[in-house]
């Protein structure tokens, strides 16, 4: 019983230490960001390319298939109530409010987040970060901040593209394959999707962008400088991002519903 208690306290202390360190790390990144945008703008753009543009194919392909599934499932379920005309509305609301931001964040974490964590971790393991410090260059400003900003900028754009392609996927399966009227598909969507639904998605994707980018750069920067340490940092990036994104999704949804009701 005593050992169990001490182990719990030890684990809790470790969690709080990491959480505190992550917050301090985040505050430092935020305080360096304005100057990085001005002074290292080309580096930030390069990271938007690395994080965003290189994730585009994955996001578009996955968005298309998610949309197709939504169209298919929506049609199947809604047709039981003779409401298959609403398939466009269901797909759009699902994608804009939930699936677009959440799945884009999870996919981004798997492709770009892991790349960021392993890249920074390897730089640590091969003394590149120490070399920068010895050249009087702060690696946090030079390496971490541009990568963080690249992720933050990319995420809302990727989520928007995911939702857009997803709606197209729903159109393909609902209208082209299953024969729902195209005009009704879009008119229903136009009548029922309100700005608050779009804003909810935008806010979520921005918050997820900050959280997912922070996890990736924090884990990479603080990884143990060995092959195993870098591997572990990469895994932790995906796991922590998934938990953070889903938990934040619930909190933002609850907050938006409380404010709009």
């Amino acid at each position: 019983m005593t050992q169990w208690f001490f182990e719990l306290v030890y684990t809790l202390r470790g969690f709080l230490q990491t959480f505190g360190a992550m917050n301090l790390f985040f505050l430092r990144i935020v305080s360096y960001s304005p100057r990085a945008i001005i002074r290292r703008f080309p580096l930030v753009i390069r990271q938007v390319y690395n994080s965003g543009t290189l994730s585009l194919v994955l996001i578009m392909v996955c968005g298309f298939f998610v949309g197709m599934v939504l169209g298919l499932q929506g049609y199947d379920n809604l047709s039981k109530f003779n409401s298959e005309d609403s398939v466009g509305t269901v797909a759009a609301l699902s994608l804009l409010q939930e699936l677009g931001p959440v799945l884009a964040a999870l996919l981004w974490s798997g492709r770009a987040g892991t790349a960021l964590a392993s890249e920074i971790g390897l730089m640590r393991a091969t003394d590149q970060l120490s070399a920068m410090e010895m050249m009087a260059v702060d690696p946090l400003r030079r390496v971490v901040v541009p990568r963080f900003l690249g992720g933050v900028v990319s995420m809302p754009l990727l989520a928007a593209i995911f939702s857009g392609i997803g709606i197209f996927g729903a159109y393909v399966s609902g209208v082209i394959i299953l024969g729902v009227d195209g005009g009704v598909f879009f008119s229903q969507m136009q009548a029922n999707v309100e700005p608050v639904h779009i804003w909810q998605g935008i806010i979520k994707s921005c918050v997820f962008g900050v959280a997912a980018s922070l996890m990736a750069v924090f884990e990479g920067y603080n990884s143990i400088p060995t092959a195993e340490g870098v591997g572990r940092a990469t895994t932790r990036t995906v796991v922590l991002t998934a938990i953070a994104v889903l938990a934040l999704d619930y909190m933002i949804t609850a907050a938006v519903l409380a404010l709009t009701d």
């Binding site: 003394d127 590149q128 070399a131 010895m134 050249m135 009087a136 030079r142």
Partner: peptide
Amino acid sequence: RREIGMLFQNGALLSDYNVFENVAFPLRE
């Protein structure tokens, strides 16, 4: 540290850059 140059055991060259850019790095910064 601007008055110090350090040679690391493995060189610690920046893997994103070629030889020229590695040497130019402190000058550019």
